[in-house]
Structures are given as C-alpha cells and as structure tokens.
Amino acid sequence: MLNSLKGLGVTLKTMLRKPVTAQYPKEHLPVNRRYMGFPALTWDFQVQEPYCVGCMVCIRNCPTQCMTATLKDNPLHKEGKSTRRKIVDIFEVNLGRCILCEICVEVCNFDAIVMSHEHELSKYERNGNRVDLQALLEMGKQYQEDTGWEPEQAAAPKEGVQA
C-alpha cells in the first residue's frame, strides 16, 4: 500500500506547483527562430520586387506538388533597375497540401522562398488555403520584418538552375 501512498504524494506535490499549460488563443508561446511555418516568398526591398524569378526548382522538388508558378519578363529589368531578367508572375501554393518539409527552401537558388512563422491558417472552405503571390509576399514581408531576415546566397555566385 505504501507505493500507492507515494503516488498520491506525487499528485499532491504537482498540484501545488504551477500549471505548465498556457491558455492558447489568449497566450501564444513563442516559436523558435527556425520554426517552419508555411512557405512564403521574400521581397527584395532594394528593388521593390520579389526575389523569386519563377524558375520552378521548388515546384519540381516539392514532394506533394502543392505549388505552381509562371514567370514573365521583368519590366524593372528593362528599365535597368533590376538584375533579374525574369520575374515571377503567378505563384500559388495550396497550403492545405503543404507538408512543411522545407525542401523548397533548400533547393531555392535565389533565397526567394522561406518557411515563415505563419502556422494558424484555418479556413472555412476546403480550398480556402490556396494562397496566391500577393498573400505569399505579405507573409514573407511579415517574416522578414519579424526576424530581420537577410539573403545569404545573393552575394554568392549563383549555381546553374538545376533540378
């Protein structure tokens, strides 16, 4: 019987301690720096355009085929403001399908895609969490602001686009 009393003692002891839970919607626990939320596209504040050129590397490497993209000629390049000859035109991610594996970020040659800290994305429709370029860039800007993100490969010599 002694061991049972010991068990009662353990529960009593924990009762007197502070609870470890947080009240979720009121109180958000901080996410870690590396937290992988949904993917987002980054914004080049210097030239005011996305980093993404629509090269499709991430799309070809995505295990769940949750993204699509098309590219177009970059109008800013013609004006000589940007070094990017092509720029992303349409970029759509079905976040309901995304498995947050970070493969897209790893294969990206332009630092154009990041795993943002966005993770609350419940919607009322099944397809409600398809996000377009605009929303992705918004998420990306938010992420860049929150974490002070800086491109790391932009300075390095670019590898050829390979899949």
């Binding site: 870690n32 720096r33 590396r34 992988m36 498995i99 970070e102």
Partner: peptide
C-alpha cells in the same frame, strides 16, 4: 519537442537528417 523545434524547425515532421549529414547545424 521544443528542443526539436529549435533544432529542426518542426515539432514532429522534422525532415532534418540528410544523406551525408544534417540539414543545418544545431543552434
């Protein structure tokens, strides 16, 4: 799991190990 999150960025589906090593060093 909070340690996992700090290291790999995910709490459950880490995708952290790579052939030949790791995706990134520990923080």
């Amino acid at each position: 799991q909070s340690i996992f999150e700090a290291v790999s960025g995910a709490r459950l589906m880490h995708n952290y190990f790579r052939v030949g090593g790791l995706r990134q060093d520990v923080p």
